[in-house]
Amino acid sequence: MADPIYQFKIKELIPLEIFETNISYTNSSLFMSLSIILVSLLLLVSIKKKSLVPSRLQSVSEIFYEFIANMVSDNIGDKGHKFFPLIFTLFTFLLFGNMLGMLPYSFTFTSHIIVTFVLAMFVFLLVTLLGIFIHGFKFFGLFVPKGVPMVMLPLMIPIEIISYLSRPISLSVRLFANMMAGHTMLKIFAGFIVPLGIFGIAPLMVDVALTALEVLIAFLQAYVFTILTCLYLNEAINLH
């Protein structure tokens, strides 16, 4: 039986090295490139005609646009307009990365902790710096929950700080773990199909069902990552 972890293996496609650091073009890089090419092509082609009454194809980009625009305006408000391109990019990048990973023999770059961690860290640093830039020292009032008795504060403030600092970890692990677990499970069940012979129909059915679930999760995790980014940005901008 094939190793279910093998699918996450990074393979060098084009060896590359700068400043004695290996930055080879790998299968992960390939699927990142594919994601951005596919999403760009899809949106560019669908918005090409710019018709007043949208065709089905044009509705695709408009639905993407309005989905993210609503998310930004609902969670951040008017001030979130500046971050719309970032949120849009984040969502489409993650969604296409996750969805491309659903194709057999493909690679899921979001199943690597380093990728999700870098993205989460980027969001975390952006939110923190933005908060300090906008509100100055007041931003740290975020760690003092409202309506809590003074006696509780010595306990609550460290908890709040820890939960704030663990945001990049929870954000990155949530996405990475979901993608990795799902793909591993698919692979494990797929590994049973051929050895079981005629009874292999059972794990096959499970795999079909799991694939449907994974498609849902692929969308859901991209959505969760994006909406949490929105919520964090909202805290930094509007400081509840």
Partner: peptide
């Protein structure tokens, strides 16, 4: 593999 992944992630 991290440097390569980070690099290409940032580029992409």
């Amino acid at each position: 593999t991290y440097p390569s992944q980070i690099f290409w992630l940032v580029v992409s």
